[in-house]
Design a protein around this nucleic acid. Structure first.
Lengths: 290, 290
DNA sequence: GGGATCGATACCCGTGCGGTATCGCTGCCC
DNA sequence: GGGCAGCGATACCGCACGGGTATCGATCCC
């Protein structure tokens, strides 16, 4: 009795655990996984026995994570991403061998668009350039895309995006400007302070969705896209503080005023630390030479 | 016919593939895995079908990796390390909850010993210090230990160790010195150049084992440990270029002369990028204050 | 050309995953 | 407070799949 199973955890078990840990509900997790609830209960219990650690505290009404469970949730997600990345990158390497080479570059939709355009142009002019598929994504999604192999390289914006775990090169740093409806009183100023913008009556800062897709509480309108935000500002329903480089996208109905005490924004190009891809290396080199 | 299995790769399949890819021999790989050869062949074939990619080129006499196979070997190892790390860190988090907290610090055996001693002393004096288990390991092993969760934090030496994928803080930088037998002609000099040391007649530079445990070809003696190297130098069979801080360990039979054009060595403390451990944070903070 | 080596194939068996039915506990509501 | 609803655990079953043995077929070597 009391055996120690000495072979490792299977990804299936990790997927099951992550589902339960996210839902905190065996029934919903089972539904999400497309299996029935009893096998799920069994699998989790087996995982706990194998680890020799309680992962979930269950009463018959509620499920909560133990400390070990929280750790396994975080680390397990990373591990699953790594497995997915291995799978996807192997598939793409096979495609590349049959002639269809290419890189996937992830960038926030609506950000750094002229920098991105310049980069793509410059890289396309390189002698050994390959196809670059651009993957426009939401706020903060780039890291996930890099980690699970859906992208090979990404444009990130410090300090908003975290570059932890990636290799990076800085491309440019921008000050930030307040974007306001044309004709707003502040428009005449040569510069403003953060405090003047964040507390404008009737022009709240918008709320962006978190990584889980939900919005924080607060007064501002909920926005999901860059264009949507600009339209809201033009309508006089919001204002925002954005990197200086966004000026190129502002129409006549919007005005920008530099914010002196806003943190500067650094655009970096990032890639997974052990990337051996010649195409990624070329893209990075081109980017640093812009 | 021609089904697409849309659920992910299992770690068992990855372990099997890595074994075959490393051995390039189904029989030996099966033996290493403790299973028979036919199920292994089947598993690999199934993995290839699932990925839709050839991973191995087999004739009945030889097995070689395809491009996709090389990618999957590299990425698969990383993924397996991540899964192992998740497993180990969850186990240790469970232990921590039952009172036995602690951090594992990895350091090269024989390197930075006084820095390490100072760090351990200083950290032990902190109010919320926990037990620090020191894991002395071979050259370049620290990265693996951090990646698969056997260590929580490590001391690395740039540019010899790669810090890719970790968060780091620099602790100190040293020049390098040539370590020679006492009485050697160069001993009288106040400084030397790289070229003068690397080509000394009868005193070749030693060869260190690579990550796979094999030695590169060359004239120098094979060494595996720091102490072994110093003894060889004292015997007049080798010389070496080492960080300045090694002087503390040199006995009277060895002499050190600064090498002006050698790259400086930076000692850094490194930890996995998403570590949420209070103990690691404390250790890092203590280290940076030394 | 015969033997040795090695991967693939054929076939069988047992484990274990996933399913359905049901129990037992808990909180809730009239 | 008793009945009910919700949820996780347990019991049991069937089958798919992982692993084993035996054997084939190809290739290299002497």
């Amino acid at each position: 009795m009391g055996f120690e199973y000495r072979d490792g955890v299977e990804t299936r078990e990790l997927r099951y655990f992550v589902a339960v840990a996210e839902e905190l509900h065996f029934g919903r997790a089972a539904q999400r996984l497309g299996i029935a609830q009893p096998p799920l209960s069994r699998a989790i219990r087996q995982l706990e026995r194998r680890l020799g650690a309680a992962l979930l505290e269950r009463t018959s009404r509620t499920v909560t994570l133990t400390d070990a469970g929280s750790v396994l949730l975080r680390e397990g997600r990373a591990a699953l991403d790594a497995v997915e990345a291995a799978e996807r990158r192997a598939r793409r390497a096979a495609l590349a061998a049959t002639g269809h080479a290419g890189v996937v570059l992830a960038a926030k939709a609506g950000a750094s668009s002229e920098l991105l355009a310049k980069l793509l142009d410059a890289y396309a002019a390189e002698p050994d350039a390959v196809t670059v598929d651009v993957l426009l994504c939401g706020i903060g999604e780039q890291e996930r895309l890099l980690r699970d192999g859906r992208a090979d390289v990404a444009l990130l914006h410090r300090p908003f995006d975290t570059t932890a775990g990636f290799d990076t090169e800085e491309l440019r740093t921008d000050g930030q400007v307040a974007v306001l409806p044309a004709g707003h009183p502040l428009t005449g100023r040569t510069h403003v302070q953060m405090a003047e913008v964040t507390a404008l009556p009737g022009l709240p800062m918008p709320r962006w969705p978190g990584l889980d897709g939900t919005y924080p509480d607060g007064p501002g309108p909920q926005v999901r896209e860059h264009a949507q935000l600009l339209q809201l500002i033009a309508l006089g329903r919001a204002c925002a503080i954005l990197p200086d480089s966004c000026r190129a996208q502002l129409g006549g109905d919007l005005a920008a005023v530099p914010v002196l005490d806003a943190p500067t924004v650094t655009t970096v190009i990032a890639w997974p630390p052990h990337s051996r891809s010649r195409a990624v290396a070329g893209l990075v080199q081109t980017a640093t030479r812009l």
